[in-house]
Design a protein around this nucleic acid. Sequence first.
DNA 1: GCGACAG
DNA 2: ATCTTGTCGC
Length: 205
Amino acid sequence: MIGKGGERFQHLLSEYVREEDCFEKVVTLAGVDVSYKGDIASVACVAMEEGVVTQEVTWIGQPSFPYVSSFFALREFPLIYEAVRRVPCDLLFVHGHGRAHPRKFGLACHTGLYFQRPTVGVAGRILVGEFDNSYGDWTYLHFQNEAVGALVRTQEKMNPIVVSVGHMISLKSAVDYTRLSVMAHRFPEVVHLAHLLSRKTLDSR
DNA sequence: GCGACAG
DNA sequence: ATCTTGTCGC
């Protein structure tokens, strides 16, 4: 596995994550996702402005690290880096966790810190934390005596998604922008489209 | 020891 | 993530 060194590395870098809104206005949104087929990875980054797709970038590569829960960035960051670096945006949604992570340093934090951009992590399942089961549209996710994320019900009758700060944004804003960015699916539209595009790119090759 | 464990 | 058919619901 990775060992204590990897955990210390994440703990150390988590200190540099900023949880305040470090932006003026959000015009361009972007989302990244990855699909796999054997040892081939397909990355897609989609940008939107006012509900209209303005840029699509794809990248095919090979993961150089196995999937290990809580060390997801070691596997996916080198891959999403190639697509994200070509897509300028005001706010980036990453499919994975941000601060809602054992060492408060998930893939979204890793990505936000590297690019120094406002980043939000959106995941389909909880990695760490507890929450009050009775809530309306959303509720905070607590871990080690602090709110590290939020469960957001983006669609009725569907399981909530886990939203957390990646970098340069407050948790409340992360929740607000996530809800504003969801259209007809469980995840923010840019992430949903990136998922479809990465999948499509993989199938047609 | 046993179960959990982002994608 | 991926392997996979039908099926319930809007």
